[in-house]
Write a protein that binds this DNA or RNA. Structure first.
Lengths: 131, 131
DNA sequence: CAGAATCCGTGTAGATACTG
DNA sequence: CAGTATCTACACGGATTCTG
């Protein structure tokens, strides 16, 4: 387990600090839209309007914001074509592509266990109807 | 790629829907504290106060809330010992333990690439100082 | 000890309108 | 087409106080 921790005296023996790597990555792609964009761009390059159409429910504002954040972190590259009408292509960088593996693992877990979670939730809600 | 999508006519060829599995799991553990708790419980069973001490910065309220949510989804089990003073143990369920794999993969990616991201971010901010 | 209840600030994100 | 600007809301989460 490589989660950042510091050995300290006491019964627990260690403590998780604020800047642990896994929280880092979740702060980055744990938001509502980032992973969807990364997964889409993992298939092929998309232009702005294509992403907008492909991702159901995203607003123009959030698409712009999320793409900017991903570009800032070096996961996505943004290419402006000087044409009329304008055209901007987004694609995964080398770094962005390396993220596909871990995301796929998480995706497969989610697909495999979503029914288990649903079942657990229903069972729980049956036992504790309303606090 | 197993992300949920529906084939539709049009240039994109498909569309990501709201209830795709990977968004499901991120809605669950993508919050500020869930993964930290899962990782800690992956090491061993903890009681409430141990978690509170081990996770720097978490409030009692959020620890309770997050544990309840994890228990509801069947990832964590909650065992109340009828003693004075009261004692409650939390541990990963079978289902919860299966999540450790994907989380570790993400953690390793984060550890391996956090410097790349930092570098990309600094480069970007140097090129675009303040919009 | 392990919480429940309350109050409240803030960031995330949606809707809408406008622009190069 | 690919954005920006503004305005707003609601949920997330922190601080504090109280209890079985």
């Amino acid at each position: 387990m490589s989660v950042t921790h510091t050995d300290v005296p006491g019964p627990a023996g260690f403590q998780i600090t604020d800047d642990c790597p896994i929280r880092d990555v979740l702060d980055r792609v744990g938001d509502k839209w980032s992973v969807l964009i990364v997964v889409l761009l993992g298939r092929r390059t998309h232009r702005f309007s294509e992403l907008h159409r492909a991702i159901e429910g995203i607003s123009q504002r959030m698409l712009t914001h999320t793409l900017r954040a991903l570009a800032r972190d070096g996961l996505v590259s943004r290419t402006v074509h000087a044409s009329v009408p304008p055209r901007v292509d987004y694609e995964l960088t080398e770094l962005g592509r390396t993220l596909l593996g871990p995301l796929t693992a998480l995706d497969e877990w989610a697909t495999a266990h979503r029914d288990d979670i649903r079942a657990a939730r229903e069972r729980h809600d049956r036992e504790v109807p309303a606090t």
